[in-house]
Design a protein around this nucleic acid. Sequence first.
DNA 1: TATGAATGAGTATTCATTCAT
DNA 2: GATGAATGAATACTCATTCAT
Lengths: 188, 188, 188, 188
Amino acid sequence: MHTFVSEYLLNNKTKVTEKQQKILAVALELFAKEGYNAVPTKAIAEQADVSEALIFRHFKSKQGLLDALYQQCGERVQFVKNSVLEATEPNECLRRAIHWVFTIDEEEYDYWKLQYKLKWEDSFYDPNKMKDVIDKVTWAFEQLGYEQPAFEAQLLEKTLDSVMISMLRDGKQVHIHLREFLLKKYSL
Amino acid sequence: MHTFVSEYLLNNKTKVTEKQQKILAVALELFAKEGYNAVPTKAIAEQADVSEALIFRHFKSKQGLLDALYQQCGERVQFVKNSVLEATEPNECLRRAIHWVFTIDEEEYDYWKLQYKLKWEDSFYDPNKMKDVIDKVTWAFEQLGYEQPAFEAQLLEKTLDSVMISMLRDGKQVHIHLREFLLKKYSL
Amino acid sequence: MHTFVSEYLLNNKTKVTEKQQKILAVALELFAKEGYNAVPTKAIAEQADVSEALIFRHFKSKQGLLDALYQQCGERVQFVKNSVLEATEPNECLRRAIHWVFTIDEEEYDYWKLQYKLKWEDSFYDPNKMKDVIDKVTWAFEQLGYEQPAFEAQLLEKTLDSVMISMLRDGKQVHIHLREFLLKKYSL
Amino acid sequence: MHTFVSEYLLNNKTKVTEKQQKILAVALELFAKEGYNAVPTKAIAEQADVSEALIFRHFKSKQGLLDALYQQCGERVQFVKNSVLEATEPNECLRRAIHWVFTIDEEEYDYWKLQYKLKWEDSFYDPNKMKDVIDKVTWAFEQLGYEQPAFEAQLLEKTLDSVMISMLRDGKQVHIHLREFLLKKYSL
DNA sequence: TATGAATGAGTATTCATTCAT
DNA sequence: GATGAATGAATACTCATTCAT
């Protein structure tokens, strides 16, 4: 399904060949696993079964490839954020905020791993990326009568972020039970 | 102070020269900022004002330099963990767990940045690193009559981890107020 | 006008499309400015607004493109040489030899630049290229009673060659006054 | 002897190793013969029997290697120019100007070939490079009562330049006889 | 005719590392 | 302990060229 989203977005601009897709897929996997700097373009080419030159033809540079990938990451983030932002009821808002972390398909983990790794690079880090979501969650806590809704929202966001990281590192199973605990904690 | 700790440990084995210290300091700074793979040994040598060869004389390889640094990181982690582990009273235990995140000197941030970045590398990641601390905090929650002490401990650890990451990325000031909120939340 | 000459010659063999002309024009400009080796076919294609493949369709190889250009250069040289060779009167012969350097249209300079640059490549250099002209000029000097007509001819040819180079490099204006001086020197 | 000059100048700044010299020598030869762009650094390394990396260690980049060579070319030019500039007597001045072209050692030809080839690159071309010499020669013609000394000087310089080019291309022998002719022409 | 996709062989340059001194 | 010289193995990227359409 997520493939559909990316393809759709890319198709608006240029035709996307099969090999181009393959390069993106392999690069995502390798960047997520080993890190951008640790992956030679040659390795990507080999694993994608294309010539190294093709990477540069399609993405201009190795950085260009990363950027393309990062853009796709952005689509996923937006998708998740929208779910929370579109909630009309405070409890539903919190529920959605908590849920998404646990519902992400393990097939999509590479996208999120890359995203989280890239957070440490200044050029990709945006401290206000989640501001709209935090604002929305603050509103939810406010509606529900919490004393310090802004802090509650901040804390929830950080907690979920950390849970997300753990799940990406240790696998979904290990932390899935935290969902019930969290929901109960916030009486959802 | 932390410099003293490292020197002490290293002194057990070999005499630590000034240049060796300089290499470690520069490498820490660069690895923390740019990432291990993005920093050439040449850059370290230049900034430390030593010959490139000296790095290899002292640390065998670039990896050896990272290992030495990682060991120093470990000392810091142990220092922090001990503070929690040695608490004899449950409230004190939680208080210490929460406090440490906010009391780390900004001068030490590079050590922690490196640590957190390295968490994404399989060869450095140890899912059970904080097990003893989590166990202790579980005990504290248990003593205090929390219903699901293990989950509470897990959650607190993750929350604090995430706060730590935010502070490393955005600076101490931005998140310092969360401390009071957390302490109040846990009635400390 | 010169365009007409080339077109005529090429037309004998194949139909010359507009794009083919564009490729030649752009290649000439770039080769003249940057040198054959410094110009990628991609740059030619882009500036000529055609696909890279088209260059190879029309000219077989990059070298083929250069050859085509060099042939056009040859036409220009022949045109100039003929003017001298066809002179029937010694003074007229010398006058024509001197004149041509100063009458070349600046629009044609790229052809001559390429020519002169290529002189340094062994595969294009022909030491006897101007032999017939030098012989004719030798004849002219002989007729006019010069003591060492062969040397005079050689010298004049070299002098004019050098003036040509200077004009190609510094522009026509800077050296145009040398014409009168030369004509006077040879009492023409 | 010229080697001595270069070594002397370079020694003032840094120690010049044997391999560094070898690289310069081979690069000069290849650049002069094939042209800068046509010579891969790998070819230089192989022929100089050093690792490719060493070229970059010593000269930063391929361009840096060319620059170093061009500087050495400059030394030679200065040497020649000085001979003319230091003449105190007009006839001697002209004699020296004419002589130098014919006295250059064929071993040095590569330096001059490179120089002349580089004249076609905008970044190396300086239209006023010979201004001081032309001024001096103008003075000489003036002293000798020539009517248009500035033009005479310009023309002589261009003629000699062209003779130089011919000698570089066809060999010394072919044009050596022009010396006597020129000397006689100017009654020297 | 004309092009976009694709590639093998380069191409300058970098990098971690070794060695003689 | 410390360094400058030197290098083999990458490394990102380019280039001329081919091919299917």
